[in-house]
């Protein structure tokens, strides 16, 4: 029936996509795996993998996950209400665009701006002083790191949630309210389940890249936070040890697959 037709329409569209996967995903993965089993002199070795299980790298992996988790959590906490309220505004598409626009200004520049804003003599500390407190060290702390990361990812989280909220049938909510459900129950039982796909999309595009954040670990966290991305960067560009860098990248890809399994989007109804 309908599903079969969908199948047929779909084979053609997949061709460029499959081509893209072969050339720009499979080929680089093959290269990474190949490099990961080479030592500095280009001979086969498994020592890179053994090294990944030493305390230094394990500790780094754990802290990477912890920070990625925090970042994702806070991004979701701030993004969901924003997306929800945006759908209630008059010019909602315009407001949504205005959420995206800041992300088009170069990240390094914005990071420099944050350095100025959070600085000891920046506007935030000036405000703190107005209220009679001593200036606080905001830069180079866990707080500033998580804050700027959330700043970077928030549009990526808002958009899918906005899109799934936007097309939601309002009569469902009215129905729930008419049946006597409280706002919280309506949200928990009706709204949230209906937007779960958008939330999952948002989590994927936040959590996964958060594992490999690198630039702001140095600029905003002053290297007090070291993520897997930072380590790979260092191995490639400073140590020029592509083997070890690739090994960490292999693990990163494995972690990504695991994340995907956890946030898998189940297809509903009789389609596919």
């Amino acid at each position: 029936m309908g599903t079969k037709i969908m199948n047929k329409t779909a084979k053609g569209p997949l061709i460029p996509y499959i081509f893209w996967i072969l050339l720009f995903v499979i080929a680089p993965i093959a290269l990474i795996v190949y490099y990961s089993v080479l030592d500095l002199n280009g001979n086969f070795t498994l020592t890179n993998y053994a090294k990944f299980f030493t305390p230094v790298y394990l500790k780094m992996t754990l802290s990477s996950f912890w920070y990625a988790f925090l970042i994702t959590l806070f991004t979701l906490l701030f993004a969901y209400p924003t997306a929800y309220l945006l759908t209630k505004t008059k010019h909602k598409q315009l407001w949504l665009m205005l959420i995206i626009i800041p992300s088009w200004i170069n990240l390094l520049l914005k990071t420099y701006a944050f350095i100025g804003i959070f600085g000891l003599y920046g506007p935030i500390n000036a405000m703190i002083e107005v209220f009679g407190f001593n200036p606080k060290q905001i830069l180079f702390t866990d707080f500033s790191f998580v804050f700027v990361s959330v700043y970077i990812f928030i549009p990526f989280m808002i958009i899918p949630i906005f899109n799934s909220l936007d097309k939601m049938n309002p009569s469902l909510i009215y129905a729930a309210r008419d049946l006597g459900a409280s706002s919280w129950t309506t949200f928990r039982r009706v709204i949230f389940p209906l937007t779960i796909d958008g939330v999952k999309s948002g989590i994927q595009v936040t959590f996964i890249p958060a594992l490999s954040l690198f630039m702001i670990t140095r600029l905003i966290a002053g290297n007090q936070v070291i993520t897997l991305g930072t380590a790979i960067e260092q191995q490639f560009l400073v140590s020029q040890n592509w083997g070890m860098g690739s090994t960490i990248a292999v693990f990163l890809i494995l972690f990504m697959v695991l994340t995907m399994l956890f946030t898998r989007q189940k297809s509903k109804g009789g389609r596919v």
Binding site: I115, G119, L120, Y121, F140, R218, L219, G222, N223, Q224
Partner: peptide, 16 residues
């Protein structure tokens, strides 16, 4: 306080 790169210049100018 921090281990940083080239952004050390604006930070030192600002007495951070």
């Amino acid at each position: 306080k921090a281990i940083i790169g080239d952004e050390i210049t604006p930070l030192m100018i600002n007495n951070e």
